[in-house]
Design a protein around this nucleic acid. Structure first.
Length: 574
DNA sequence: ATAGGGTTAG
């Protein structure tokens, strides 16, 4: 039967396949396993263009074997329509053809791609009934499905119940936790790998480095980088890219650049994009743009991420004309702008006060603007006090069913700035009636290699009393410098719940206060925050950096803010 | 009744 394999390998087109199939039919082999399944598998998985032909043949088989099903399910699972694999799996169950471990594996793969959690649970119980639960590979796939479908508890349960686990099982859970917003858990798990007598490989470190990036865990990140070099894992581009990202996101853009420059392997498109994004995050717009050009000279063709990174860089550095020019040149270079590019350029123009141009772009773009884009524009309207546009934009947001607290606050601030109190009251009412939601803010800070997490108004930290006492002192001292909290008319009136989370206990302030009491004088304090830093915190950080003579580095959702001697690296343009 | 399945960077 080996000749079928070798002939399949030589098939370069559908007509070759058909010739081979005709040959198999005339020699009578096609009716039998395994030639037919092999041909099906080849068509279903070697190229998306052959998949329709595979399903065509499949539907003409009166009574498909398990392996015929496997071939089709595998192909469909990898296609753009993974749910079709599940339909096929269902058909198989009804035809009472017995699934084997591979059938389950392919079907689970389809669940992972379709994020089909409940289907995964059904396959889970089936594979137990079929007696496959000792299969490490299958259990790892299962674990991965749960993690991808954001059921991390489910993933962990599968992991805990595995009798035998190899490094891949660990990798799946570490990566799952890191991608599922549980980087602290991911890192804990990573530290246990060695204790279990297993050896971390390149996939393990990818997950762990991603966790470090998210947490700003530089101590652990550097340890991993050492390990990477000792084990020669730095010959892997993905690992290098992850290290660059880790250094950048932990605040060390120069170290990121060193790794970028001295890589022992070929740079990929992602490598360039990562480094451009790193410079953008650190507000170094000029260098980011230079790198973008260098990349082009180097013969690497920028993709949509490259453009986004460069636009972002212009945005953070206030390079309005450069950014606008870049945006306008995209289409000519074969990259059509997506929602994020539009968002970036609208932000760029909006911050520069070029509201009409920004609005024109929104009105004329070929894709339907999303909520975030309108919010960006609304933010600009607030900054420049354009009530007229703010009202139009707000109406759009309401039409789109936006329930974000921020939208209401922004509009009401536009009115408040013009002392239109009736309108302020109206917005406030609308807000009460709408059950607006807020994303909870949190911050991380690392002290002596330990990551501490703070939520807004949090009292869960063991030193919370000292932290709050320190904040009072801070407030007292900065008031002497003329600080007054940024009055926010809406926030003052939305009741008790908000009072607990008032401005002065924003998570980044708690984190900085903790840094002040737990590190020695002069040590920089670094904080990572999940949302954008608010105006009040920004003002407070500047004063703290001056009065306490501390460099404070805050990485927010968008970029780094370096507060030193009373001013910020973003030059208040953010 | 040769195989085929798990984790992976911006």
């Amino acid at each position: 039967m080996a000749f079928v394999d070798s002939l399949l390998q030589k098939c370069k087109s559908l007509s070759h396949i058909k010739q081979l199939q005709a040959h198999l039919i005339t020699t009578g082999l096609f009716r039998f396993y395994p030639s037919r399944s092999k041909l099906l598998d080849f068509c279903a998985t070697s190229s998306p263009s052959l998949l329709p032909y595979a399903t065509f043949i499949f539907h003409h088989i009166p009574c498909p074997y398990t392996n015929d099903y496997n071939a089709i399910i595998r192909g469909l699972a990898l296609s753009h329509h993974p749910t079709r694999a599940l339909t096929c799996y269902l058909r198989m169950s009804r035809a009472s053809t017995k699934p084997d471990a591979l059938t389950c594996s392919f079907a689970l793969k389809a669940c992972a791609r379709a994020l089909a959690w409940s289907e995964a649970t059904q396959i889970h119980s089936q594979l137990i009934r079929l007696g496959f639960e000792i299969d490490v590979l299958l259990k790892t796939t299962l674990l991965d499905v749960y993690a991808k479908a954001s059921d991390l508890d489910g993933a962990r349960k599968v992991f805990d119940e595995m009798g035998r686990r190899d490094i891949t099982s660990w990798n799946a859970l570490i990566a799952g936790l890191a991608q599922g917003n549980q980087p602290d858990e991911a890192l804990e798990l990573f530290k246990r790998v060695e204790l279990e007598g297993l050896k971390a490989n390149e996939v393990t470190v990818l997950g762990a480095l991603s966790a470090c990036s998210q947490l700003g865990a530089i101590k652990e990140g550097e340890k991993i980088w050492d390990y990477v070099r000792v084990e020669g894992l730095d010959l892997n581009v993905q690992v290098c890219n992850s290290v660059i990202d880790m250094y950048a996101k932990c605040g060390f853009v120069d170290k990121a650049y060193q790794v970028f420059e001295c890589m022992g392997c070929r740079k990929s498109l992602v490598t360039w994009n990562t480094m451009i994004m790193a410079l953008a995050m650190h507000g170094d717009g000029r260098r980011a743009m230079e790198l973008f050009e260098e990349m082009v000279r180097f013969g690497v063709c920028p993709d949509s991420v490259s453009y986004l990174a460069a636009l972002c860089a212009c945005n953070h550095a206030g390079l309005v004309d450069d950014g606008f020019r870049l945006f306008n040149s995209m289409a000519g270079c074969g990259v059509s702008p997506n929602m994020k590019h539009y968002g970036s350029v609208v932000d760029l123009l909006g911050r520069a006060g070029r509201l009409e141009e920004a609005f024109d772009i929104v009105k004329s773009m070929p894709v339907v603007p999303d909520v975030v884009l309108w919010q960006t524009l609304l933010g600009a309207c607030k900054t420049y006090g354009n009530v007229n546009m703010a009202e139009q934009v707000s109406r759009k947001l309401v039409e789109m069913g936006s329930n974000s607290c921020g939208d209401f606050v922004l509009l009401s601030n536009v009115y408040a700035a013009l002392e239109r109190w009736d309108d302020v009251g109206r917005v406030r009412e609308a807000m009460k009636n709408r059950d607006v939601k807020k994303v909870p803010g949190f911050s991380y800070t690392e002290v002596e290699g330990v990551i501490h997490k703070f939520l807004n108004g949090d009292q869960r930290h063991s030193s919370w009393r000292e932290i709050y006492r320190k904040l009072e002192e801070v407030r007292f001292r900065i008031e002497a410098y003329g600080y007054a909290p940024e009055t926010n008319y809406v926030l003052h009136d939305i009741g008790q719940e908000e009072k607990d989370n008032a401005l002065c206990y924003h998570s980044e302030k708690l984190a900085v206060a903790f840094g002040l009491i737990s590190t020695s004088e002069g040590t920089p304090i670094q904080v990572i925050k999940n949302l954008r830093i608010c105006g009040d915190c920004h003002a407070v950080m500047k004063l703290i950096s001056k009065i306490y003579e501390r460099e404070i580095i805050v990485r927010d959702r968008a970029r780094f803010h370096r507060f030193k001697e009373g001013s910020c690296s973003c030059r208040d343009y953010w």
